[in-house]
Amino acid sequence: MEAFTTYTGRAVPLRRSNVDTDQIIPAVWLKQVSRTGFDKGLFSAWREDPEFVLNQPRYEGAGILVAGPDFGTGSSREHAVWALQQYGFRVVIAARFGDIFRNNSTKMGLLPVVLTGEQVEALQSAVEKDPALEITVDLDGREVRWGADTASFEIDDYTRWRLMEGLDDIGLTLRHADAISGFEGDRAAWLPVTL
């Protein structure tokens, strides 16, 4: 996955709560068997509305999505993360995330940043006032900075390290292949097999 250290760029405010993954990428887009081409499906139902934020030229090219609480709830589809990334987002900021979405994001190098509801609101207002506002998301320093404001966020050391190094989880796990084999040797005999 792509390593993430710091991103500086513009943001787009999405003033909606409970943006479930069915909205991020509707089911009809899930029929693809490749990993590419999902940018067209991002928020595809909402993008039919010319007023929708992503259709507003002033937010074009933004790399940070600032959303309402409970972003990415619902279905486990990782396609939601691919769609956001392929559209050009590197960071999503919200007060709360769906667990699976958040997990999927960190596997792919899309940074989910949790700020408080007030901080999210302040950032959304700042961006609405000045869409050209430059925002820095600094994973190393665990900080979001814009104008004169700074908001720090929490992320566990391990996930931060993995994101900053851009490391593939499977490779890391396979270093412990012996431990896995050892565990397998002790599993109860009644446990089912499918073959």
Binding site: S76, R77, E78, N103, N104, I170, L174, A177, E184
Partner: peptide
Amino acid sequence: FGIGTSEVEHVLATQTLPQV
């Protein structure tokens, strides 16, 4: 519990998952 596609690949390859 439900997992994403990267994790599906991880389980296929290792039969394990990193979890907190």
